[in-house]
Amino acid sequence: MQLTIIKYNAGNIQSVLYALERINVKAIVTDNVQQIQSADKVIFPGVGEASTAMNYLKERGLDKVIKTLTQPVLGICLGMQLMCKHSEENNTECLGIFDEEVKLFRPSSFIKNKVPQIGWNNIYDLKTDLFKHVKQNSYCYFVHSYYASLGNHTIATTNYMQPYSSALQKNNFYGVQFHPEKSAEVGEQILKNFVKNIHS
């Protein structure tokens, strides 16, 4: 099986590669269109800023490539946000795979949470085989200032100021807001599920 990680100007790609190594899965990191299209599965990682990342993808034609992939695709963190329709981060038009909106966490006088959310939080209302063997309310590691709203494609929910989508799915496209590569055993299970239990 060929697993391909999309290389672009976003951080944390190495961490995803190492996490896959720990579960004995080999992957290649590339921005080569053909290698992405011919992969059995694709991971679209990312830590960074939405508009810069979208511009980078557009310059290389990767925006169109990602949208038209037919094999299972897993977006992580910014990767998932970029798969949504639009992000409030610098008012960025994104790939439009998921209908959900990406919004900024806005603390109020009632809810004074810190932004970004940094740390471990629960995931619940888990759906699809991406969460096979993962218990309700498992803890995952999150680092983000923007969140995807709840919607038809929500397959996991997390609360921070309000409930939001901690994972999304539409057809062959999956996205997680947390970092499975840094979420201890739970994260490893989710990566294993993507590799072994998700089929297009």
Partner: peptide
């Protein structure tokens, strides 16, 4: 109400 639905459930580290 918020605490019953665990609003802001990020844990202490």
């Amino acid at each position: 109400l918020h605490s019953s639905v665990k609003i802001g459930g990020v844990t202490k580290r």
